[in-house]
Design a protein around this nucleic acid. Structure first.
Lengths: 132, 132
DNA sequence: TCTTTTTTACGAAAGGCTTCGTAGATTTCT
DNA sequence: AGAAATCTACGAAGCCTTTCGTAAAAAAGA
């Protein structure tokens, strides 16, 4: 029997911030991530380092140790993480009712005409392919 | 100058669960809340009590001490809390782009024809009233 | 009355997240 | 070579959240 690889956990807040940098920049060093984060919120270098080490343990990132300065790669897609977080919120506060979440989302960030059009198109797509 | 009353903080997970009971049942005692929660997840009575005491301190609920058995009232609306949580998620993971959140929401919980219709109506409403 | 139950108050432990300081190794610069 | 900078590893503190145990007061029941 192979070892049971547990599912990758959802990132914490700080971890998510780091993943976002990796998704945007691509594989990066601790220094690069730290600098990207520091522009928004000053923080210690070793803080980023420690977090990224933890993330490697958790399987959120992959660490390339070929050179002395390690390079970190995201190991889960933005889409997967977004899906997980949205499902969480959906379950925790909206009883899984997607339309109630959408209602609030449309209320919270004001929606441009463009965005509305995109959403309509998406609805068409869903209903078109759905036989229920 | 009046004392500066700080804004009510967003509820934690356990606090949210309690608020949801209060929203559904209306003003309730610790016992009632505890029983409502215990059906889903067994937990100690004093756990609910402690949480509700903390929530009263934070201003999330109001405590009526007229009788020995205190009665707790929600002090923020479901709508306000939902708005806050959605905005959080929006900022933290979607750069404030509501349509990206909606996209994921529509993907996460599968959407019924009914829900789709509601969302369309909502979009109509927004675009109708919006002069941008 | 005396016992049992209900209720509040309080303290504190356990776990998770974030942050940082320090140490040691390696590389780079002068 | 010697000094300075860079990098990883590690431990631990501080904070927050959740959970529960214990104690004391009040009410209800026998």
């Amino acid at each position: 029997m192979g070892e049971a690889k547990d599912p990758i956990p959802s990132p914490t807040d700080a971890e998510l911030a780091i993943l976002r940098v990796l998704w945007r920049r691509g594989p990066s060093t601790v220094r690069e991530v730290h600098e990207a984060l520091s522009t928004r919120r000053p923080t210690g270098y070793t803080t980023a380092l420690k977090l990224m080490q933890i993330m490697a343990e958790k399987g959120l990132v992959l660490r390339d140790e070929a050179r002395r300065t390690h390079v970190y790669h995201p190991r889960i897609s933005a889409e997967a993480v977004e899906r997980g977080l949205v499902r969480d919120l959906l379950d925790r506060v909206f009883d899984g009712a997607a339309d109630r979440l959408v209602l609030r989302a449309l209320g919270a960030g004001r929606v441009t005409r463009d965005e509305a059009a995109k959403i309509r198109a998406l609805l068409d797509e869903i209903e078109g392919g759905d036989a229920s």
